[in-house]
Amino acid sequence: MTSSLNHDPYISLSKITKGYKISGDDVPIFSNLDLEIPGGDFVAIMGPSGSGKSTLLNMLAGIDRPDTGSLRIGTSRLDQMSEAARASWRAHFMGIIFQFYNLLPMLNVAENVELPLLLKPLSAKERRSRVEKVLDLVGLTGRARQYPKLMSGGQQQRVGIARAIVSDPALLLCDEPTGDLDRKSADEVLEMLRFLNRELGKTIIMVTHDPQAALYAKRTLHLDKGNFVEERRAAL
């Protein structure tokens, strides 16, 4: 499948405000944040610590809510959905890749990848078939029965990617996916993300501190003090 950048905004944030109470004081993170991301885009979000990158990613994942403003992904208004509805939305429309992989240690590779499929009405055979397919895609064929603790960081992150894409979500959110990896492993993971974006048409939002990682994205947004201050587009 070739990349097709759909220019209708797939993700739309409008007049988002968000703040936290820290030691009784209101600490604003965003005020009137606007953002539009078309379907099929690959966006890197950079910025210093405390700039709001993780908060933004959490809101896009539906695990945190804006205080005001609208947050739409596809046809879903995440800001208006209940906790249970957002969980269901995550199960069907979004995959998430963590910095520290967050694989469950008592499950082997295949079982970790299968986890999101437990939430779908699939037979055991269908689940197995999908798991085999994505493990093949991330180059882990033959390691299905291995346990995460016996794998390198790069391999564990591939398992994390396989888990994120096994339910075929349109949106992938990556929280510092190469932050715990050496350069070589990081490049392999980033190549894989680029492949998923270009060949499978996944919309990818990646939070990163690593400028080299950001080069893999189609565009990079710099966030500072709750506002986007710079945008760089990669040469296609």
Partner: peptide, 16 residues
Amino acid sequence: TFEIGVLKALGFSGMQ
């Protein structure tokens, strides 16, 4: 607790 967060982030509901 952290793993419970991971499960919920993957789409498991509080009830599940």
